[in-house]
């Protein structure tokens, strides 16, 4: 996809898009690589603003992994230097306050390390920006608003209108990242920026073990025909309790959620 296919790349030359990138880990070999969701975020950035879109990474600067993002045709990575024990959120927050962006994109969660998926949320909280999780596309940006296509389960989509600036995480439903090429990867710059990088105290005494895949409950489908099986695979799960609240104030809605969380034992 050429960067020009985005309708606003010309009419909106000042649009600032930044993608947060992490070093991924190949599921089979464990080798460092570009993280697949982050790469999709970069792809979306490229679509919107071409090679003017920015890449931001907090960490030590693992060459092999990061250079693959540059290989997608971007000139540089802003490398906010921090060691593995630092907390990325305050570093990103203070950097984005100095170097503002209109749209910040990231993957849903990292492929290694803590991989909690909390960075975009915490960052949104720090910056006071809205966050749109799991988007498939940004269709246009106009008059300070973006039309964002959010991916929902089972291939459904929801079009949202979001005020700039905002943070979005990019779903696997977004277009695949383009091939990375050796030439631009070699030429791209890693602009190291020295930042204040406080150690993530909470994590220091955590113990890390390799994750084990959780057993999955098999869904026994008693289907006779292929059509039945197809239906079973695609049907929405029937509502198991719960209710849809459309009317009422935000406070009432929030209270309803809180009640549920307490009932389920999530919040005590």
């Amino acid at each position: 996809m050429s960067p020009d296919s985005f309708p606003n790349s010309l009419s909106n030359p000042d649009l600032k898009v930044a993608s947060l990138i992490s070093v991924g880990q190949h599921p089979k070999s464990g080798r460092a690589r570009r993280a697949s969701q982050d790469a999709r975020a970069v792809e979306l950035g490229l679509k919107m603003t071409g090679s003017a879109s920015r890449l931001i990474h907090v960490g030590g600067g693992d060459e092999t992994g990061l250079r693959q993002y540059l290989g997608m045709g971007l000139p540089e990575i802003t490398l906010l230097k921090a060691d593995g024990r630092a907390d990325a959120v305050p570093i990103l927050a203070s950097y984005l306050k100095e170097q503002p962006a209109d749209i910040v994109l990231s993957g849903i969660h990292a492929e290694q390390g803590e991989a909690s998926g909390m960075v975009p949320y915490l960052l949104a909280e720090h910056l006071g920006w809205p966050i749109v999780p799991r988007i498939a596309d940004i269709q246009k940006v106009e008059d300070g608003f973006a039309e964002v296509l959010q991916a929902l389960p089972r291939g459904q989509r929801r079009l949202l209108r979001v005020q700039l600036p905002f943070i979005a995480t990019v779903d696997n439903a977004a277009p695949d990242a383009r091939q990375y090429a050796f030439g631009p990867a070699r030429r791209g710059l890693m602009n190291g920026v020295a930042v204040y990088a406080p150690v993530d105290e909470a994590r220091l005494d955590w113990q890390e073990n390799p994750a084990k895949p959780r057993p999955k409950r098999l869904n026994v489908v008693k289907a006779k025909s292929a059509a039945d099986r197809f239906k079973a695979a695609t049907a929405k799960p029937q509502g198991q309790g719960g209710k849809v609240i459309r009317d009422g104030t935000d406070r009432e809605k929030a209270e309803a959620i809180m009640e549920l969380l307490i009932a389920e034992g999530v919040v005590r």
Partner: peptide, 16 residues
């Protein structure tokens, strides 16, 4: 391949 990153079809995947 090396400059444009345009290896067609399954090319990119195989190289990856």
């Amino acid at each position: 391949t090396l400059e444009r990153g345009e290896t067609p079809n399954k090319g990119a995947e195989v190289l990856d």
